[in-house]
Design a protein around this nucleic acid. Structure first.
Lengths: 202, 202
DNA sequence: CTCGGGATTGACTGACCAGTCAATCTGTCC
DNA sequence: GGACAGATTGACTGGTCAGTCAATCCCGAG
């Protein structure tokens, strides 16, 4: 068991090193030897734990996306207003970024937004998130809390698109970063999408 | 002059072929010889007109993005309500996609959303679009038409993010495509961002 | 007609790097 | 203590392609 544990740790070591390398150099630009070096491990060991370079990124993405999908599911069954559900989802994603910006950068830049390469491979997983968000919107429409002239699919895309664009803004320094900004963002994203930018008279 | 004209045409021929190849295979996946074949031109001729493979994509992006920036500028000086300005911008982008989906796919997938590779190179250009949209929002806030608790930068990102996500939805068949859908999208994006998803009582 | 220069050709090269593999090490179990 | 299995090593290979270049073509000017 101690042996197996050591193996799991090495595997994790490589995954963590890969996150750092992918985040700083990009998946396509880096070499597998960069990952091995970063993990302080021999080149060949990477191939002992992973079938290919791709499999490393796949693993990182699937691990994390699974957690996201579970989080959305849990939010969905809570008995709170739809706006608060969306707020909880936005908060979860923002917290994920605060907790591990490199990992979120890799997932967004190399998978979610890389629709032509890894994004295509994982389209079903990514779509699943949209579907779950759309379900929340649909329920809100049935309960007459949300207007029903915007289709749920469309609303889900707009909501997720706004969240992802804000993270991208942080990742590439288009937007100021900091604890205050993270907290504000959680509210502002939902305010924008649910409440709208226009002032309401009265 | 006839000679020069022919050269311009060949250059255009190669650019157009590149759009088709990039759109169907992706920039990184395709070979320069694929572009030459698609253009029915010898391999070496591509390097007669372009310094590198990168320069082809750069040219395609800059050509088109320049048109977008000009379009936003023109909308900005019109004397119409802010919602209509945003609507005009959304319409312009949607029309660009309707007119040449392959080109817009390439620009979005390979540049705008490829923040780690070409997106980084063209960050200033991309940012310029956000800045111009943010200026529209800022003016709307000063005129007390938009609420002022959402920063203009943030609003611009959310708006652009929603538009881009919808295009991405079309590109990867996450959203139904068609003339009707394009027309609806122009309104719905703006409705969502300006009006908000929530029903307004009264 | 012929000469000059841009247009066009495609074979070739040099670099790069993912993935392989045979050798070596190390902890564990009997 | 020895022998087995998994862990670890890093040199090497095979394939891929971006970019080069010397040769050829062809048009227009004089």
């Amino acid at each position: 068991m101690a042996r197996t544990q050591a193996a799991i740790d090495k595997r994790r070591l490589i995954l963590d090193a890969a996150v750092r390398v992918f985040a700083s150099q990009g998946f396509h630009t880096c070499r597998v030897s960069d990952i091995a070096d970063e993990a302080r491990v021999a080149y060949g060991l990477v191939y002992h734990y992973f079938k290919s370079k791709d499999e490393i990124l796949d693993t990182l993405f699937l691990e994390r996306w699974d957690i996201l999908l579970h989080a959305i599911s849990e939010v969905d069954v809570l008995d709170i207003p739809p706006r608060e559900k969306l707020q909880a989802i936005a908060s979860f994603i923002v917290e994920s970024y605060r907790h591990d910006p490199d990992l979120m950068k890799v997932i967004i830049v190399e998978v979610t937004r890389a629709a032509n390469t890894f994004g295509r491979t994982h389209l079903p997983q990514i779509r699943q998130a949209y579907v779950q968000i759309a379900a929340i919107v649909e329920r809100a429409q049935r309960d007459r809390v949300f207007r029903n002239d915007v289709t749920p699919d469309f609303a889900a895309l707009a909501f997720y698109g706004a969240v992802e664009q804000v993270l991208t803004g942080w990742i590439f320094s288009l937007l100021p970063v900091g604890d205050r900004e993270y907290e504000d963002a959680k509210t502002l994203i939902v305010e924008t999408i649910c409440g709208g930018l226009e002032r309401v008279e009265g």
